[in-house]
């Protein structure tokens, strides 16, 4: 059992340790007074908190709406719309995240909420598409077997379609998270805060050390979440 836990936590702990070492080193050994003023523990924790806030709120919304929407579009009555949506999502994802933020800035203005909303919309796409594609991909004969044995549509959805589509839905969520963590660094441009603060500050005062801190924490967050979700999925899906 102890071994098992270490196997799970080994990589995450190493990643966190690397990020922590970089932060601690930078704060304690600032190259000059500008870095010393701009890079404090207090500020690092604040931007991490903001970043997690952006991520958590926008991802929770995206997962709920994306999965529910994907399920609805996979029902026979909306299926045609679902197919159209698939194409649109693929186009939508080619729009750069900076453009999305800029768009919402012009429409809704500044602030955390606007940033969350933009991230939410941007993260929904892969989840919506994968949920739809995952359910759509369940072999027809499996559904027919289930119907032939007297399963009701709702039971077929919850007992057959969703579990079989689960790995694909999770893949969509993982994609969304990685995109989200990256895109959230841009939130600072519209006053949404987050790790982008460090990066933008570093850029404006030409201090690479500050940039590196912001970038490393963002990267570690993305890798970490992706890794953990992958592990949980491995645990849940034992049949593939």
């Amino acid at each position: 059992m102890a071994r098992e836990i270490w196997k799970w936590l080994g990589i995450p702990l190493i990643m966190i340790a690397i990020a922590a070492v970089i932060v601690i080193y930078s704060v304690n050994n600032p190259t000059d007074s500008i870095v010393a003023r701009m890079l404090t523990y207090e500020r690092v924790f604040r931007v991490i908190r903001e970043h997690m806030g952006l991520l958590l709120v926008s991802m929770t919304g995206a997962i709920i709406v994306g999965v529910a929407g994907g399920i609805m579009l996979s029902r026979p009555s909306l299926y045609r719309i679902g197919r159209v949506m698939e194409t649109f999502v693929n186009i939508g994802q080619t729009v750069p995240s900076l453009a999305v933020l800029a768009l919402f800035y012009t429409i809704l203005g500044l602030g955390f909420n606007v940033a969350v909303f933009a991230l939410f919309l941007y993260s929904i796409l892969p989840i919506l598409r994968n949920t739809f594609a995952g359910i759509d991909g369940v072999e027809h004969n499996i559904i027919e077997a289930a119907r032939g044995m007297g399963m009701r549509p709702l039971r077929i959805l919850t007992k057959i379609e969703l579990p079989i589509a689960f790995p694909i839905i999770v893949a969509g969520i993982r994609t969304a998270i990685v995109i989200n963590v990256g895109a959230a660094t841009l939130a600072t441009f519209i006053g949404g805060g987050g790790l982008g603060d460090l990066i933008v500050t570093g850029l404006s005062v030409h201090r690479d050390m500050i940039i590196v801190n912001g970038a490393v924490i963002a990267a570690v967050t993305a890798i970490l979440l992706d890794y953990l979700i992958g592990k949980v999925e491995e645990r849940v899906v034992r049949w593939a």
Binding site: N141, I142, A145, I160, I164, F166, W239, A240
Partner: peptide, 13 residues
């Protein structure tokens, strides 16, 4: 009782 031509076992069960 129904045995479907393609067998149709549920892969996740």
């Amino acid at each position: 009782g129904y045995v479907i031509q393609e067998i149709g076992l549920f892969p996740h069960m």
